[in-house]
């Protein structure tokens, strides 16, 4: 990693917040449309809800940063071409695995019997893989939708377009 590179910039912060918040609202919207929102909330309390949201935000920030680094490495590589879809897939997979790992850790801490911890550890081998695969698909969906939004942004104003020429007299 470049030593002068800032850990966080506006693009990284906005993308991670966009992904976290839109995903959360989409999930709530889905439960509402299915008519199961009340039942879904019945098993939660305020503090657990806030903690879960904070965990998802932090893991999304870390995963989005990893996706950005992957994209930059591809840009500098002579063998590969940079793909935004690929970087969001990498970020999504990492995010899925991280969220699962945090949930498994929380479950192990809550149960803290040797048998339960061993069972969680063994099951996590499969769990992390499945979570990473699901996260990858979510990443593909985000990559496609973000590409559309960036296209809209470029259509509104293209900062790379040349300055209008001034006629020489």
């Amino acid at each position: 990693m470049d030593a002068t590179e800032a850990w966080i910039d506006l693009r990284l912060w906005s993308e991670s917040a966009f992904r976290t918040v839109s995903f959360t609202i989409a999930v709530v919207f889905g439960f509402h449309l299915l008519g199961t929102l009340r039942e879904s909330f019945a098993s939660l309390n305020t503090m657990i809800g806030f903690a879960a949201f904070a965990v998802v935000w932090i893991t999304t920030l870390v995963a989005t940063r990893a996706g950005h680094r992957h994209y930059r490495q591809r840009q500098t590589s002579s063998r590969y071409s940079a793909s935004r879809l690929e970087s969001t897939t990498v970020a999504g997979s990492l995010n899925g695995a991280c969220v699962y790992a945090v949930l498994a850790l929380a479950a192990a801490l809550a149960l803290h019997t040797p048998q339960a911890v061993a069972a969680i550890a063994v099951f996590s081998v499969l769990g992390v893989t499945v979570a990473a695969a699901i996260g990858g698909f979510v990443g593909i969906a985000y990559g496609a939708s973000e590409a559309c939004l960036l296209r809209v942004s470029r259509a509104i104003i293209d900062t790379d377009e040349p300055q209008p020429r001034v006629a020489a007299t």
């Binding site: 506006l10 693009r11 839109s22 609202i25 939004l149 809209v152 942004s153 900062t159």
Partner: peptide
Amino acid sequence: LALSFVRSDIVARA
């Protein structure tokens, strides 16, 4: 959120 994603991209590029 979609509008804000576009808006942030415009600001970052500007």
